[in-house]
């Protein structure tokens, strides 16, 4: 199997998934609506309480990268739910009976979810700009920030791809993901500074990759006000490196796992 035909098969599958975004725009609306709601709730309900001197302006700037990170991580559940739905409907059986590249269904799926994440990030950035978020670095650094978020989300997509091939229905993917992702994105520096957390939670948060991707994005967007004390722990002092290490490790483990599960999967 040549790499080229594997890529072209992957592109065919990705196109198929993207047509779904076009046909069911509600899907994109609802994946972006809840983060927009989060931005507004946190910015205006908690913002004043957390950032009393600034009247919430500094907190809103702090908040946005956290919401970005949370949103793209949650976005990975789409990968799992989409695959689980395809298994359930017998579409995976059809694909598996075709002489196509066996990896194409998963590479196509994870790729189309990157496109989905790009669209979501655009909508959220515009919302952010409206509530006072600003990029205070160069365009190149800002681009780096978005790329970091996308790379991390891509890695998590592969975890969800494996989960999606494993569980019996898309609903299970959503529920299972919620239990894991919710604490992962909250016990982190996404919404609050880490110095407010009690001991063990704080240590967990300092090594939580979601904290690192948030910290990395904040730095690259220039959303850390001068005079902020440096974070503690190696991970948060090297957030880009730490995030990339996580992404590589997750991909190295879950790409083969998801592919093996794809070959084994059976429709129900």
């Amino acid at each position: 199997m040549s790499v080229l035909s594997a890529l072209s098969d992957g592109a065919v599958i990705a196109k198929r998934n993207l047509i779904k975004i076009k046909r069911v725009p509600d899907l994109l609306v609802f994946t972006t609506l809840s983060p927009i709601m989060f931005v507004l709730l946190f910015a205006y309900v908690f913002g004043g309480a957390i950032d009393q001197q600034g009247g919430g302006q500094a907190y809103r700037e702090f908040l946005i990268a956290g919401i970005f990170a949370q949103t793209v991580v949650f976005g990975a559940t789409i990968t799992g739910a989409g695959l689980a739905e395809d298994v359930k409907k017998g579409i995976i059986d059809r694909f598996r009976s075709l002489p196509m590249s066996p990896s194409a269904v998963l590479t196509g799926r994870t790729f189309s979810d990157v496109v989905n994440n790009v669209l979501v990030l655009i909508v959220m950035s515009l919302t952010g700009l409206l509530v006072g978020w600003r990029i205070r670095t160069s365009a190149l650094e800002a681009l780096g920030g978005f790329l970091l978020l996308l790379v991390f989300a891509y890695a998590i997509s592969w975890v969800m791809a494996w989960v999606g091939m494993l569980v019996p229905s898309p609903e299970v993917v959503n529920n299972a993901a919620f239990i894991v992702i919710f604490p992962l994105t909250f016990v982190a520096n996404t919404f609050v500074p880490l110095n407010t957390l009690p001991g063990p939670l704080r240590t967990f948060a300092e090594w939580n990759p979601v904290s690192a991707v948030t910290q990395g994005a904040r730095e690259l967007f220039g959303n850390i006000p001068p005079g902020t004390p440096p974070p503690t722990g190696w991970a948060l002092n090297h957030p880009v490196m730490y995030t990339l290490i996580w992404a590589v490790v997750v991909l190295a483990v879950f790409v083969p796992l998801a592919n093996a599960q794809y070959r084994r999967s059976a429709s129900r």
Binding site: R16, K20, G90, I91, D93, R94
Partner: peptide, 17 residues
Amino acid sequence: RQRIGLSGQYAAVDEYL
């Protein structure tokens, strides 16, 4: 797979396409 066609028990068509 190059020589067969399969139509399963449940119509495996993509309903959004």
